[in-house]
């Protein structure tokens, strides 16, 4: 028990955490494969990150430092709530600085700051099955995974090019993990897809409602699906960040008035802050 909460450490009971850890071990052993697990009821609704929270709870230790981001930001409701939840139920240190965190729970982004071997990135996943929209039958999607039978996903990309002239899918862009399993990277922008591959950090994915866990172990090759003559490419926003001036980071569009005014700013708030501090430091020097 953490001293002041009345909950077991990190909310979940130890049996549940062991169950989840077994699923995680299997997921790490079979990169990209969706491992079923007995997802628990959590004190927040499905779709708010119950899968990610359970995975975080299962890997968190007393010495960890936790960072939670939602769409790249540390200060949105969801991120703040989850960070507080673990501060209260586990008593762990929290941070908004990517490089200080040992566990980062995320929704819809990978931090701009390169991750290290000492870090675990936990993704919240709404729909873990990349074939779900093409094949509604679970038994059949499992068979397709078992057989590595992924032509239908390629058909989906073909359709994009045929109709839109290019692969239009901008987020949750399907990947092949370690040359084997077709995997959903969760609804991160395809801008982040290259960071999935050969990443020094352990990447864990939890889908609470769908009761699935999967993983990309450190330094695993991850390939975004494409065609030889329509290779995977990241769209660059074409603007610098209006606050820190970065031309490389992923930007959010912010509408500033009712007259159509808008600015583009870094989606990763910690990255933007660090750059602003760096710029201020340079100015002072």
């Amino acid at each position: 028990m953490s001293e002041d909460s009345g909950y077991n450490f990190a909310y979940l009971d130890e049996q549940t955490k062991r169950m989840i850890r077994r699923a995680l071990l299997k997921a790490v052993a079979v990169p990209g494969y969706q491992v079923p697990f007995a997802s628990r009821e959590m004190p927040l609704p499905y779709g708010w990150g119950t899968g990610g929270i359970q995975v975080t709870a299962a890997v968190l230790g007393p010495d960890d430092t936790l960072k939670v981001i939602d769409q790249g930001a540390d200060d949105t409701t969801n991120a703040v709530s989850i960070r507080r939840f673990f501060a209260k139920t586990a008593g762990v240190a929290t941070t908004t600085r990517t490089e200080e965190a040992s566990v980062i729970q995320t929704r819809h982004r990978i931090p701009e700051t390169p991750l290290s071997e000492k870090q675990i990135l936990v993704y919240q996943v709404p729909i873990p099955e990349p074939l779900r929209w093409l094949e509604p039958r679970e038994a059949e999607t499992r068979a397709l995974h078992a057989l590595g039978d992924y032509g239908v996903m390629q058909v989906e990309l073909y359709e994009d090019i045929a109709i839109h002239g290019k692969i239009k899918r901008a987020y949750d862009y399907p990947v092949e993990v370690a040359g084997r399993y077709l995997t959903s990277p969760s609804p991160i922008p395809k801008f982040d897809n290259p960071k999935l591959s050969d990443c020094p950090a352990l990447q864990l994915f939890g889908a609470g409602r769908e009761k699935r866990i999967y993983a990309i172990p450190p330094y695993t090759p991850v390939r975004s699906l494409d065609f030889e003559d329509h290779p995977f490419a990241v769209d660059h926003p074409g603007h610098p960040c209006a606050i820190c001036g970065d031309t490389e980071s992923f930007l959010d569009e912010i509408v500033t008035d009712d007259a159509g005014g808008r600015i583009f700013v870094c989606s990763d708030t910690d990255h933007c802050r660090a750059r602003q501090e760096g710029l201020a430091h340079d100015d002072a020097a």
Partner: peptide, 27 residues
């Protein structure tokens, strides 16, 4: 047939399912 997929996608599916990865040739 896959009714939600274009005629070209329907015809090309077998090629993609057997490793075809060149959009122009499939088309």
């Amino acid at each position: 047939l896959r009714l939600a997929v274009t005629a070209g996608g329907n015809v090309g599916e077998r090629l993609m399912a057997t490793g075809g990865r060149h959009y122009g040739r499939i088309r």
